[in-house]
Nucleic acid binder design. Sequence first.
DNA 1: GCAAGGATATCG
DNA 2: GATATCCTTGCA
Length: 188
Amino acid sequence: VEVEAYIGEDDRASHARFGRTDRNAVMYGPPGMAYVYLVYGMHDCLNVVTEPTGRPAAVLVRALEPLEGLSAMRAGRADHVRRSRRSANLTARDRERLAAVPDDRLASGPGLVAAAMGIDRRATGTDLLDPGSDLRIEAGSRAGRSVAATPRLGIGYAGEPWVSRPWRLILADSPSLSGPSRGRGGRD
DNA sequence: GCAAGGATATCG
DNA sequence: GATATCCTTGCA
């Protein structure tokens, strides 16, 4: 329900802005592949490579609206907390906080999408269009819900005009958009 | 408001 | 090899 587009080496917000590197190599390959990177040392972010081979581009998946597999998503969130705690067990406080997360906020941010889905950098290169892949994109419908476009988030370093490009696309009425309180009528 | 956290790209 | 920075989150 929330994605951002990054396209070309000209896009100063894109990982391709420095040209091809070990990290972003998959962005230069065929479309439909997963590109997962680690940001801020603790969060994995899922991207879908787009554009034909040779043209670096990807779409960052920033939020999902959970429909099924809710308990698995909660388990994924719990695993992520355990990893950050470097502990085999959660504290009582951790369990309280996790239990307080509403179903529709289980994946309301790019790092949370990966945590809830159990995705990390090892998924890079997965063919998301192959029905045999564990991680894949399947046909769906947005059932007439309206799409809105806004500037991308967290890319101030890119400068204009990239900061203002309306390349974040959202299902405007979703309660699952990223951010602290978007679910209860946030700014966007 | 800000610390945590580790990889990355770049500079010396 | 050292360092500044990062497509974030959840705390105080």
